[in-house]
């Protein structure tokens, strides 16, 4: 497996506070990775850097076979490169129907003119139906996204990510505010998605991480503290210290 994303030596500080400190991280094609760490460890900031929302002070972010630097691209260009992101707080377009949300996310030409002339074909509608089915929202297609429950919004957002057909999916706390059954469904979705693409999941819930059954990276104070299987990292004394606050 080849490296899909390589982050090396990245640092960023906000008003003198180092949120990310010489962080290095790699992920391969079709790999599932969990990222854990205490509050303020820099997990969300890490995603901000990869997706172009935050510019690092130093370091490199290299993407794909062509080894292009993501640091020279803006958010939209990075998204078009094939990096999709789910935010910590679910963000869907509440004033639009679930179907419209999906249609906007479908992988299509994003240019102004092609969007203007776009009319969904039968195949597009079928793809939307399939996605809705996958995230269990077939019955909600014509409802306004704002009327959905919290868990459903999270799924809609995950479904929209899948619709983008990204090569790398960055998912920030997907299970927050979900019932146990919803969590289980969500973890299955992510495991399934990672069969054909790279997926990075940030999550606090250890039970959820265990179900993902993948390599775990522990972040602390903006740097990698430990990496390996869940059992391996949870038996690491540094990790135990950090989590127990010693």
């Amino acid at each position: 497996m080849s490296t899909l994303l390589e982050v090396s030596g990245v640092s960023v500080s906000f008003d003198g506070f180092k949120a990310i400190n010489n962080l290095s991280f790699q992920i391969a094609d079709a790999e599932l990775r969990a990222v854990i760490g205490p509050n303020g460890a820099g997990k969300t900031t890490f995603m901000d850097i990869v997706t172009g929302k935050t510019r690092p002070d130093e370091g490199r972010v290299i993407w794909g076979e062509r080894s292009v630097s993501l640091l020279r691209m803006n958010e939209a260009q990075i998204a078009r490169e094939g990096i999709g992101r789910k935010f910590q707080k679910p963000t869907v377009f509440e004033n639009q129907t679930v179907r419209e949300n999906f249609l906007m996310a479908l992988k299509k030409d994003r240019g102004v003119l092609s969007v203007l002339l776009f009319r969904p074909s039968k195949a597009d509608h079928e793809q939307v139906d399939a996605l809705a089915e996958q995230v269990g929202m077939l019955a909600e297609l014509d409802r306004l996204a704002g009327e959905l429950s919290h868990g459903q919004k999270q799924w809609l957002e995950i479904g929209m990510l899948l619709a983008q057909e990204p090569r790398l999916l960055l998912v920030d706390e997907p299970a927050a505010g979900m019932t146990p059954e919803e969590r289980e469904h969500t973890s299955e979705l992510l495991v399934q998605a990672a069969k054909t693409r790279a997926v990075v999941v940030v999550e606090h819930d250890m039970e959820f991480v265990r179900r993902l059954g993948c390599k775990v990276t522990v972040l602390h104070e903006g740097a990698v503290l430990a990496e390996g299987s869940l059992d391996h990292v949870t038996s690491n004394s540094d990790v135990i210290d950090v989590y127990l606050g010693r």
Binding site: A79, G84, V92, F93, V112, R119
Partner: peptide
């Protein structure tokens, strides 16, 4: 159509539209 969806999306949350890969400025 979809153009309407995108511009209403920009009105409601332009950051999210950007992360979907649309050039909001354009």
């Amino acid at each position: 159509g979809k153009f309407g969806s995108v511009i209403r999306g920009i009105r409601d949350n332009e950051t999210r539209v950007r992360f979907l890969g649309y050039s909001v400025e354009g």
